[in-house]
Design a protein around this nucleic acid. Sequence first.
DNA 1: AACTGGCTCAACCGCCCCGAT
DNA 2: GATCGGGGCGGTTGAGCCAGT
Length: 238
Amino acid sequence: MGRAPCCDKANVKRGPWSAEEDSILKNYLEQFGNGGNWIALPKKAGLNRCGKSCRLRWLNYLRPDIKHGGFTKEEDTIICNLYCTMGSRWSVIASQLPGRTDNDVKNYWNTKLKKNVLAGKLSDNTQVSVSTIPEEFGNSSYYLSADSAAGMIFDPSANSNYGNKMTSTTQEAAAASSLSISSSSSTLENNYDLRSANGNVEDEGILLDDFDFEYSYELLNGFDFEKASNEVAQCLGG
DNA sequence: AACTGGCTCAACCGCCCCGAT
DNA sequence: GATCGGGGCGGTTGAGCCAGT
C-alpha cells in the first residue's frame, strides 16, 4: 500500500497557472515565505492548489532569480560534462548554473543537448585545444567520479591564474584518491553524496564543497568540445 | 488555408530521503 | 528504533506552438 497523497487531488486545481494565481503565490511568498511548510501554504495564501504544485511553480518559474531564455555554449558544456560525470543529477547540475532550474536543465538536455551530442554537434564553432593533465593532478584529492569515460578532475587547491582546472581522462580520475562524502539535504550548498545504482555510497565520489564554481567558465579553458562530444556520446552508449 | 508531425516546456506523478516525534 | 509526513528529486506527460507539406 502506497503512502497517502499529499493533498486531495480531486479538490485542488491542476494544470496551467493563471496570472492571478501566480500573483497571489508570488506576493504571499515574498511577504511571508513558505513558512517551512509547502503543504500548508496554499490554504494560507488562498490558493486552491497542491502544496507541491506551489513549490514547483515558485522554484521553476516565479523565483526572481530565474534566468529565462536560451542556454549558452558554456552552459551546454557544463551540463554535458556534469551529466557524463554524475548522470541525471539534475538538481546538482542546475546548482552550478546560476538562474537555471533542474527542470530547465533536464528539459534542455532531453530535448536538445542529448540529440546534439549523439549527432556530434556539440563542438560547433567553439573549438579550443585539447587539455593536457597538469602534473599536480597526480596527487589530486578532488575529483568528480572515476567511473565515466569523461571523468573530470577539479583541483581547488591549485593556485593558478586560470582558476580551478579540469581535464577529462578516466585514468587520472581513477588514480585520484578516494574521499568520504559528506551528505547534505541541500544540494544548493554544493554538498552531494554520490550513490551507486543500488543506493550504496561508493568510494568513487564527488566533493563539491571545496570547489569554487565561480570558476565555472574558466573550466572551459583548454577544453576540447569535440572530444567531449564523443565522450558524452560514449556515456550515452553511442 | 488546412493539416500534420515534431518540438518545447510547464506541470504532474511517484518515489526516496530525512528530520521530527 | 520505528513511524510519519514534508521536501526534494528524476521521470514522464500532454497542451500548445511551429514549421513543413
